[in-house]
Design a protein around this nucleic acid. Structure first.
Length: 426
RNA sequence: GGAGAAUUGCUCGAGUGGCUUAAGAGGUACGCUUGGAAAGCGUAUGUACCCCAAAAGGGUACCGGGGGUUCGAAUCCCUCAUUCUCCGCCA
């Protein structure tokens, strides 16, 4: 969420930014309401602190009066304090509702898009930042989509997943399961080599963590909620990992913090049915290796490029044709200032599949989480947080299976063979 | 799941209603001392918000979270979380 002080001082810049997110004039009014409520909050606090101060002084006096035996004076003063306390209670109530009103408004304001973000309403307006790297596979007319191939080679059983749980929970088997594990291992090794500390975080988080990363309150319906304990199944490892330093003040020398984590990801997003969500294209449970960084604000865009390079390196090693999109304002996630999506080409479906999303959140998450660092002068600043998928498994599997199909079977890319222990699935 | 004990600042740790402006120790920073270091001595050392044009200064809140009793709570009560010990169950 944005800081009120930032809203006060950069109104014009914010309005320009929100226009890219297709905000109406009506919605812009929220900005003014925020400032009005914040003014009110200050006014109430000044008044309230003043009363509390008087109560504190009087209480001390009462103690002294009792000690010196002046019961009458003490009791008179007690009455005064009681009156002050009534006033204080009223102000406190007012403060509470003002603050929650203010938060409610602040939660509605998304991050301000970076200058580079193109305006636009939907994914059709995304900018192709880097077009096709690699060659589109030439599979011929009899190319099969991955959902047929995984069936043919007994790699994944979707029907059993439905039996056990429901749609969107595939069961990987044999070489399918092994290939998946090989990819995870490969991704983690790549991240480790790039200096990310490997973590194995909790896959269920509490409410505070979900709020910290911006998954609550906005996207409650997208997460699985464990109501008995008020916990949430993570939609991505970004949630537990980014929350590691929630409400912390780091030393400037501690930055950057670089973390990587493998996790299953759970997403409710009760989807539509049809070809574009068929097979591995969209799931309720999938696996992903995530990279996360907490960095000095002056470095965050440099680091964003570094993360892009990291993801590109992996896709090149896997020999998958890919392209990079720069998301437009309308497609940008709520918390992000700039996002690049990676898409790989899936040869039989003949379409691009999103396999990674790399974002700079600037201070949007760190402000919610109160994640700061102290500079040499002892001044505190919010860190910038970034994260990216490196990578999400199912669509990598889908394109890898489709693109590498041959009359002999599915050819395993060279780089994975030491992890799989086999070079073909047939 | 049951019974008991605990949670205090950067760390350890004292603190059973006003004498706490949270003792004391350690750590850290700076200064003094020294040929240099150590020791010693001195000073400082949290977070958030508010007042003030700013600085200086002042105020409020914070002793695991939330609520309550009281003129006054780290201290008493309720509740939740976490940690430890024992019992039960368990991969």
């Amino acid at each position: 969420m944005l800081q009120v002080s930032f809203i006060r001082e950069n109104r014009q810049q914010i309005v320009e930014g929100l226009k890219k997110r297709v905000w109406s004039e009506d919605q812009m009014n929220i900005l003014d309401q925020i400032i009005v409520l914040d003014d009110k909050r200050k006014e109430i606090q000044t008044e309230h602190d003043d009363i509390l101060s008087k109560i504190n002084t009087h209480s001390k006096t009462i103690g002294e009066l009792f000690k010196s035996g002046k019961q009458g004076e003490a009791n008179a003063l007690k009455t005064t304090v009681t009156e002050l306390k009534n006033m204080s209670a009223g102000l406190e109530e007012n403060m509470k509702s003002t603050k929650s009103g203010l938060d409610e408004l602040l939660f509605q304001v998304p991050n301000i898009p970076n200058q580079l973000v193109p305006s636009g309403n939907s994914d059709e307006d995304n900018e192709v930042f880097k077009d096709l790297v690699g060659d589109l596979p030439d599979l011929g007319a009899e190319a099969k989509p991955h959902w047929d191939l995984v069936n043919e080679y007994n790699m994944i059983d979707f029907a059993l997943g439905v039996k056990i749980t429901g749609a969107g929970f595939p069961l990987y088997m044999g070489k399918g399961a092994r290939l998946q594990r090989a990819l995870v291992q490969f991704f983690l090794d790549e991240a480790g080599d790039a200096g990310y500390l490997e973590l194995n975080p909790p896959f269920i988080v509490n409410e505070a963590s979900a709020i910290g990363t911006g998954n609550l309150p906005d996207k409650e319906g997208q997460m699985y909620h464990v109501t008995n304990d008020n916990f949430y199944l993570i939609p991505t490892a970004e949630v537990p990992v980014t929350n590691i330093h929630r409400e912390e003040i780091l030393a400037e020398g501690d930055l950057p913090k670089k973390y990587t984590a493998f996790s299953p990801c759970f997403r409710r997003e009760a989807g539509s049915y049809g070809a574009h969500v068929k097979g591995l294209n969209r799931l309720h449970q999938f696996e992903k290796v995530e990279i996360v960084q907490m960095v000095h604000p002056s470095k965050s865009y440099e680091v964003l490029d570094e993360m892009l390079n990291h993801v590109e390196g992996i896709l090149k090693k896997l020999e998958l044709p890919y392209r990079i999109l720069r998301l437009c304002g309308g497609d940008l996630s709520f918390a992000s200032a700039l996002t690049y999506d990676f898409e790989v080409y899936s040869g039989a479906q003949k379409r691009w599949l999103e396999v990674s999303s790399v974002s700079n959140f600037e201070t949007f998450q760190s402000n919610r989480m109160k994640m700061r660092f102290k500079d040499g002068d002892g001044k505190k600043h919010l860190v910038h947080t970034l994260n990216g998928s490196a990578l999400a498994l199912p669509r990598i599997m889908a394109s890898l299976i489709e693109n590498n199909q041959s009359s002999d079977g599915i050819i395993i890319p060279e780089v994975l063979r030491k992890y799989t222990g086999f070079d073909i699935i047939n």
